[in-house]
Amino acid sequence: MTTDAPTASAELGETVINIDRLNKWYGQFHVLKDIDLNVKRGERIVICGPSGSGKSTLIRCINRLESHQEGTITVDGIELTEDTKHINDIRREVGMVFQHFNLFPHLTVLENCTLAPIWVRKTAKKEAEEIAMRYLERVKIPEQANKYPGQLSGGQQQRVAIARSLCMNPRVMLFDEPTSALDPEMIAEVLDVMVGLAEDGMTMLCVTHEMGFARKVANRVIFMDGGQIVEQNEPEAFFNNPQNERTQLFLSQILQH
């Protein structure tokens, strides 16, 4: 059923995230079933699947926005448990970009980017601002630094959200449907930034339906349905020669358009 992780791992580093027989329930509802996933440094994974398949829940377990009931998740050598200190240690190293951006509307773009470095990483304010400006340049909106998120377009807001995460210098970036809430004209500018990140070797887990993006940057595409990993493979093999019937059906439906 599931194929092995891609063989391209020769160029990849050590394990960053290891998920072992993960199970999660919402009340009586079994959302994640026996998930095994190993992510190596520099790996870029795209997770796709129908809504309700558990893909968002899976990546939200990695920084403990959701707690799990069975199995283990180890991030950067630290196992996720109830321990608040461990949770915050992991969150510091794992950046997350949300579907609805979730920028802090009462803070300027620059303040959005410097808040966590100053208070969590204890970076000096001036240094944090320099770092923030560097990342805002990288996402191509340094001129918006002193505006409020409400004054920016959706695409610009999402790029700020990416810069905000990068300012914490994370070892892994999680993307939870980063382009799903954007107008068509703005999707490209966000994907461009993400492709740039991938080229720089950032370890990425990305829940998305942007199959062009998956083809272009992913080392591995994972297809989920009903809370389990149905199939995973390198993008070429995944798109051209899906093994599982369910995957074939899903791909035929989303690639028609």
């Binding site: 920084n63 926005l65 608040t84 915050n88 240690d89 969150r91 510091r92 794992v94 950046g95 997350m96 949300f98 609805h100 979730n102 920028l103 802090f104 509307p105 009462h106 808040l115 966590a116 208070w119 969590v120 959200a161 905000r164 995460s165 914490m168």
Partner: peptide
């Protein structure tokens, strides 16, 4: 305050009191 604000603050590693003081209360009081 939308749930996303708590989540974004948590995802950045801000603990309860910092989250409350810098993200939640300024918006809630407003």
């Amino acid at each position: 305050i939308p749930k996303g604000q708590y989540e974004a603050a948590m995802a950045l590693g801000l603990g309860y009191w910092r989250r409350t003081a810098f993200i939640i209360l300024p918006q809630a009081l407003k």
